[in-house]
Design a protein around this nucleic acid. Structure first.
Lengths: 119, 119, 119, 119
DNA sequence: GTGGTCTAGACCACT
DNA sequence: GTGGTCTAGACCACG
């Protein structure tokens, strides 16, 4: 996994986003063990503190959990994962539609644009 | 014009975005005079410096220009405005599609989701 | 005479510069009568105060003088005009050379560049 | 590095110009880390905000870039630097020639003047 | 310690 | 009254 960070957004948020997507896509599966913080940090060329912050936040969301002294794992709660996926999708969709509507575009126009873009 | 600011994004960026949209929508028309910096600032309950920062950035983009000691105006370059509009739309559309594709969704699935959301 | 003003520099300075050049070039000759302030102002689409400011400054330099109730004239002091011309030229030349030298260019290099540019 | 500011031009513009020249000359090299905003500000006896304004503008030009929380660096895009250098030189040269031509001087006369001035 | 943002308030030149 | 510049000083997120 290689991550191109942009400098406008906090790195830890970009990492969170990336791992979230991996989970939603199913690349990381329920119960999978995650690399150690250190390992992760070196792989991403990132400060361990940053890595830790990202994983902590994922833990508070519930997408990963920690087994003391053993490592971090993807949650076994598949419902949660699905819920996350749906949320992610409807979120993106709604804001997308909202933004275009804000420009005064009608739904028909939005559909047209999408047809043009989806090839 | 009332603007509700969110705390995640810098105020000046939100102002830029808002004015940009007004221009794109045609609420502000080519050659229109903008409210003075101070007036704008009081209306938005923002420090004049902040307001100025936003307007300066819009000027470097080229969407507005300054007449010395006279005020600020919407660009007369309608091509630029149209270009901005198109850019804005295709930008939003492309990232939207990219984000959903990244999740492994096929184009058909994206279409379905949109149909569900567009009511 | 048509003047395209830029918005970065004060208009009155641009006017001064322009009239100065006209005098140096000899378009305005020793003893010539200048248009009235009002006339000038309408021609240049400029506030009369601005026009006045410009002419006043030219008067303090000595390039023009006022005959009470009669109008403004180009100085009859041709020496002054010549001095101005020389000053203008050596000024521009010296700063030009200084700026390029500052970049670390040798005199030979500057000569080359000039040969390339002068066609 | 000591900078003598003149009062005619905004300080932040003079700073921009100075840093630009340092980059063009190669005193600051591709990828070099710049002093921190605060450090720079104290060195130049300028308010940090002013310093920041200058650096921001250099960033929009692309000559420097920011690494979040880490510092600012000279661009690694050496082509851009070269382009800037050329632009700077031809710009200065062209306006110089234009200004003298505007006075009615022939190219031969300009050459003579330069020979006189270049010693 | 780094840059980013924001506020408050002041002064200036120009028209 | 307009924008432009500058200072002082504060707070924040990030790493």
């Amino acid at each position: 996994m290689i991550l191109e960070f942009n400098n406008k957004e906090p790195i830890y948020l970009q990492i969170i986003e990336d791992i979230k997507i991996s989970i939603i896509k199913g690349e990381y599966k329920s119960g999978d063990k995650l690399p150690s913080v250190r390992e992760y940090a070196t792989k991403l060329k990132v400060n361990p503190n940053t890595m830790n912050k990202a994983l902590l936040e994922l833990e508070t969301i519930g997408l990963i959990y920690t087994e003391r002294t053993n490592g971090k794992y993807i949650t076994k709660d598949e419902k949660l994962i699905n819920k996350c996926k749906e949320q992610y999708i409807t979120n993106k969709t709604k804001t997308f539609i909202k933004e275009l509507k804000q420009l005064g575009l009608s739904l028909d126009e939005i559909k047209k644009i999408l047809k043009g873009e989806i090839k």
